[in-house]
Write a protein that binds this DNA or RNA. Structure first.
Length: 758
DNA sequence: TGAGGAACTTAGGAAGAAGCGT
DNA sequence: ACGCTTCTTCCTAAGTTCCTCA
């Protein structure tokens, strides 16, 4: 790992899901304090400062703090503004580029070849000829021509212009003719770059995402099928026939009966509340206690059904498969700008019980069935609109080409909007992905300056600037997420950098022989625990002491900071920079460094892949991508060990045989026995290789027990690094990326050569 | 300036499919 | 061919960021 990114292994060892530690739950419960009460915070700060002047200053620690406070007092906002102005100037001169880059104005590898015989362009197929100079830093934002009717017109026009130039220049300057023509031929291609319009630029300015969009709309969840009459529900031991509405919701609960969820108070309470809403008034008056409800027959019925599904004959299974395939073919694709593209999620989410992650206050609530009347369709005006199911209507059909979604609806749990969008292999997603990594590479070019800046800001007179600088340091060093504020009681209590609270940090002046150690313990996204002990610089440590002073555990650590302030600041440091770019940058740069460090060209393929996985793992640890250890982990580890032992024995046998063959050959000295020695030798070699492969596998698996590699691979690692690595070391790309991943990263596979550098 | 909404990316777990050893 | 394991795909929740409006 790069020295920059200290990450204690104990984080993984001791990391556990929220559910496992009640510590958090108890701590966060019954919270009366409001973190967002800024008035109060400001007042507290005021009084803090005035108090400090009366304090006994004999203690050195206090003296230091008081000094810092006095310094902070002087900060004036006007000065600060001037500083910003200066910074802006600096930014311009730093990379010598104008501030605003063209939106989407980068060279696209998503250029499709001639239509295939079904009349569509198939993504992702790229013309080989496009490979040139793409990895060039300077080339990264050049637009690229794409064949369409429009662009063909423009190409014609351009050609005419070129012809004029080509004809006129020699006619006028016969004297320098030879030289000029030579030059012109050389210069013309680059002149073309300045011709003002290009296909993409014209299409994609002002946030336009497409010109044509046609699709078939969503696939709705299958309607509810009432239970057969022999499957009964009991209340208080007595059989009770439920109305269809109530029965459907009951089956949602019954299907989850084996899950831990259904034992949780919050889940049961929310479920019962929502269930009652679906009951008839008669049912409502009868069913008053969930504990008296007996869903076991329903549960058994569903279990039996799933068993039956597993036991289906081949033909039946094939029939289902074919039906799914038909649905995919009909609804799974759309046409966007002449290309047939795969849709990511064309099925509407079926009704059910909401399963939040961690301690979610809304777990168990009823996720209602989505009807056509809830659906907004987005497509182009001149397309064939999708038809709603017979007898129904869409909520709306709109034609907004500044967004990428095809279908949307509002979900009833959080009131948020859900979308149907394209697959990661699509042009629109791929280009965005590429842009993301280009942004991270731009950060690479100025990260030193930004680091110097935030280190300088640790000394600032203004509290808000110090907080901003320390937070940015965490985001950079520890790859923390930005940490938006969340509405209390609406979601699980999780935090990111800006929303850290005092209770999430413990400061240790000295710990395990290291100075200034900060112990982090909080729940991040998806209620995954982040636990890490990090030695920090003295100045950061002192600042943290200052931030935490006179605060309650449940107070915000950075009370003068939020993600919007932080991102505004980042925007000033580099155009387009946001907190999340640091995660992408640090992940990708770590992969590259690790690959360079770990791979040796003498290794065989499995050893090289182990190195790759280890590099990938370093990133996953940095980003805290955890997983629950697979249920069968111990067992499968044992199985592997058994295999290894067997292989070792086999090797010993083979060696013994080889030895005796050699002895035999020494005595006999004939061709036949020589051959026998050779074949035994080969056998030993083969078994040794097999053994090594197994051992590597075991190491890999053990190290991977609680770490999820997929998330970083899919979202944080510039695929061009991996592609280049494969090319450099002769590893087939299939060993690193499976089919889906290769589709998603087609742009990178197409463009990256072995010398690509992030 | 801050709240709320919209759009889009990132995330881990469950279900389903494929592969492998017996 | 069968049963178990592992890999892949699907699912949808939970983040970030940007925009709009008061």
């Amino acid at each position: 790992m790069s020295g920059d990114h200290f990450h204690n292994d104990s984080q993984i060892d001791s990391g556990s899901r929220h559910n496992d530690s009640h510590k958090h739950k108890d701590k966060y419960k019954d919270k009366e304090h409001k973190h967002k009460d800024h008035k109060k915070d400001k007042e507290r700060e005021k009084s803090k400062y005035s108090n400090s002047e009366h304090r006994d200053s004999s203690d050195k620690k206090h003296r230091d703090k008081d000094k810092e406070r006095l310094k902070l007092k002087d900060g004036s906002s006007d000065k600060q503004k001037d500083k910003h102005r200066e910074k802006k100037k600096e930014e311009r001169s730093f990379d010598g580029k104008p501030k605003k880059e063209k939106e989407n104005g980068f060279e696209s590898p998503f250029i499709k070849s001639e239509p295939e015989n079904d009349g569509f362009y198939h993504s992702p197929k790229h013309e080989k000829s496009l490979k040139r100079e793409r990895d060039d830093d300077d080339a990264e934002f050049k637009p690229k021509k794409i064949k369409t009717e429009e662009s063909e017109k423009k190409a014609k026009k351009r050609k005419q212009e070129e012809e004029i130039t080509n004809v006129l220049v020699p006619a006028l300057c016969t004297a320098v003719l030879v030289a000029c023509v030579g030059m012109l031929v050389y210069i013309l291609p680059s002149l073309c770059f300045f011709i003002p319009f290009r296909w993409e630029e014209e299409r994609y300015t002002d946030g336009v995402k497409w010109k044509f969009l046609e699709h078939k709309g969503p696939v709705f969840a299958p309607p509810y099928e009432p239970l057969p009459s022999n499957v009964k529900f009991y209340y208080d031991g007595k059989h009770m026939k439920l109305s269809p509405g109530a029965e459907e919701v009951a089956t949602f609960f019954a299907k989850m009966l084996d899950h831990e969820y259904t034992t949780k108070d919050v889940f049961r309470k929310n479920f019962f509340k929502d269930w009652r809403k679906e009951m008839t008034s008669e049912e409502k008056s009868k069913l008053t206690d969930l504990n008296k409800c007996d869903f076991s027959e329903m549960s058994e019925y569903f279990k039996a059904q799933s068993e039956a599904r597993k036991a289906m004959t081949k033909e039946e299974k094939l029939k289902i498969k074919e039906e799914n395939e038909r649905l995919l073919q009909e609804y799974g694709f759309c046409i966007m700008d002449n290309h047939k593209e795969r849709i990511a999620n064309f099925r509407i989410e079926p009704p059910g019980l909401f399963r939040g992650r961690g301690d979610h206050p809304k777990m168990g609530m009823l996720k209602r069935r989505i009807r056509p009347e809830d659906i907004i369709i987005n497509c182009s005006k001149d397309s064939k609109y999708p038809k709603p199911p017979p007898g129904t209507k869409w909520k709306e059909v709109r034609h907004d080409n500044k967004v990428t979604w095809l279908v949307s609806w509002t979900e009833n749990i959080q009131g948020s909007i859900k979308y149907i969008m394209l697959n990661p292999s699509s042009r629109i997603k791929g280009e965005k992905d590429w842009q993301k990594y280009e942004m991270a590479r731009r950060l690479k070019k100025c990260v030193d300056r930004i680091r110097a800046q935030y280190r300088e800001d640790w000394k600032s007179k203004e509290m808000r600037i110090r907080q901003r600088a320390v937070a940015l340091y965490f985001i950079d060093k520890l790859a923390l997420r930005a940490g938006n504020e969340k509405e209390e009681g609406e979601t699980a209590d999780t935090v990111g950098c800006c929303s850290l609270r005092v209770e999430h940090l413990t400061l240790h002046q000295e710990m395990d022989g290291q100075e200034y150690v900060v112990e982090f313990d909080f729940l991040g996204k998806d209620s995954i625990r982040y636990y890490n002990k990090v030695p920090v610089e003295k100045r950061v440590f002192k600042n943290l002491q200052l931030f935490m002073e006179d605060k309650e555990p449940e107070d915000d650590l950075f009370d003068r900071l939020n993600t919007s302030i932080l991102n505004k600041h980042l925007q000033e440091l580099m155009d387009g920079l946001t907190a999340k770019v640091f995660r992408t940058y640090n992940a990708s740069i770590t992969l590259q460094q690790q690959l360079n460090e770990l791979t040796s060209s003498e290794d065989n393929v499995p050893a090289k892949i182990l190195s790759y996985n280890r590099a990938n793992r370093a990133v996953a640890i940095l980003c805290n991508h955890q997983r629950a250890p697979p249920k069968t982990f111990e067992k499968s580890m044992q199985n592997l060990q058994t295999k290894i032992d067997a292989k070792k024995e086999q090797l010993a046998d083979a060696k013994r045989e080889l030895k005796s063959a050699k002895a035999d050959a020494k005595v006999r000295r004939d061709e036949k026995s020589k051959k026998a020695v050779e074949s035994k030798k080969k056998a030993v070699q083969r078994i040794e290789e097999q053994l090594m492969k197994l051992e590597v596998q075991a190491t890999d698996r053990e190290e991977n027990k609680q770490i999820a590699l997929g998330t970083s691979k899919l979202n944080y690692l510039d695929p061009r690094i991996s592609v280049a690595w494969c090319k450099k070391f002769g590893i087939p790309i299939e060993k690193i990326y499976n089919k889906t991943q290769r589709e998603k990263f087609a742009w990178a596979i197409d463009m990256a050569e072995k010398d690509y550098e992030f």
